[in-house]
């Protein structure tokens, strides 16, 4: 057993090293769907579940809201695993302390398009020795449960896609507001989506579902707004969707007004959006 674990570890290290070079290492390398749009972040073995996890995202991980796609393989025969319970806990190791960050794990036990999809809100930047994705997989193929850890680099999103504020009027809650999408804003109508989480402890970042949000896009250098924006409304799990309109190119600030039970509790947060 010991030799087996050892060889497994060696295999894992080998694979991990290789993966840093390029993601065309093993012949059984999966073909992600869609292939081009996803970027491989890294891979690791889920020790105990006889599985290997390959982590993708649509772009390099940044502070704010990231969707990650995890493909799981049988570590023995390399076949794709599509059935099981999978979740991720992001973890920041700051040396003196550790904390997690908001995460949205899938409740599905079957992969969608071959992936388990998870969303993580990184609340600060960090290197792969600081940030890690701790993965748990209950492999329905063999009934085993295991854990794996993958260090990831998280760079600051500029302009920031995640703003945080301490809201005195809501029991001094530390609140994280993350912008979803809007990577390529256009002049005209754009979908606008944010997700709001609150920090209840180092490891507890629940979604906030009872806020009311108003948006007001503004060109800071001109001081004007745009017409007919649709304020985001809660659609579940702390996600709020609406529409934001831009009348010209340039730099826009989407100002956020947050209400709780009809009381304005925050009005100084905004997202910078640049249209080229």
């Amino acid at each position: 057993m010991k030799t087996f674990l050892k060889s497994l570890l060696i295999a894992a290290i080998t694979l991990f090293t290789f993966s840093c070079k390029k993601d065309t290492v093993t012949p059984q390398e999966p073909t992600p769907t869609p292939t081009e749009s996803l970027l491989k972040i890294g891979e690791t073995y889920i020790l105990g579940a006889k599985a290997k996890a390959v982590v993708y995202s649509d772009k390099a991980l940044v502070t704010g809201y990231n969707v990650i796609y995890v493909a799981l393989y049988d570590s023995i025969d390399g076949s794709r695993l599509s059935d099981g319970h999978f979740n991720v806990t992001p973890m920041m190791d700051m040396g003196s302390m550790m904390h997690s960050s908001p995460v949205e794990n899938t409740e599905d036990t079957i992969t969608t398009g071959g992936y388990f999809k998870t969303s993580v809100v990184f609340i600060m930047p960090g290197t792969s020795t600081e940030w890690s994705l701790n993965m748990m997989f209950n492999n329905h193929k063999n009934g085993l449960t295991g854990h794996g850890e993958l260090g990831v680099d998280v760079v600051s999103s500029t302009p920031s896609k995640c703003v945080s504020t301490t809201i005195a009027l809501d029991s001094n809650a530390k609140v994280f507001i993350s912008l979803i999408g809007l990577a390529n804003p256009i002049v005209g109508i754009n979908d606008f989506e944010i997700v709001i989480h609150k920090k209840l402890g180092m490891m507890n970042f629940p979604a906030i579902e009872n806020y009311t949000v108003e948006i007001d896009p503004e060109m800071p250098s001109m001081g004007h707004s745009s017409p007919n924006n649709v304020n985001p409304v809660h659609i579940g799990k702390g996600h709020y969707t609406g529409e934001v309109n831009f009348t010209m190119t340039g730099l826009w600030n989407v100002n956020l007004k947050i209400y709780k039970n009809g009381t304005l509790i925050s009005s100084d947060q905004y997202f910078e959006i640049t249209l080229h």
Binding site: V187, P220, M222, M248, G250, L251
Partner: peptide, 14 residues
């Protein structure tokens, strides 16, 4: 057309 050139910010066009 209108193109504006704010200092230190992207061009605004409409």
């Amino acid at each position: 057309d209108m193109t504006m050139y704010p200092v230190g910010e992207p061009i605004m066009y409409m």
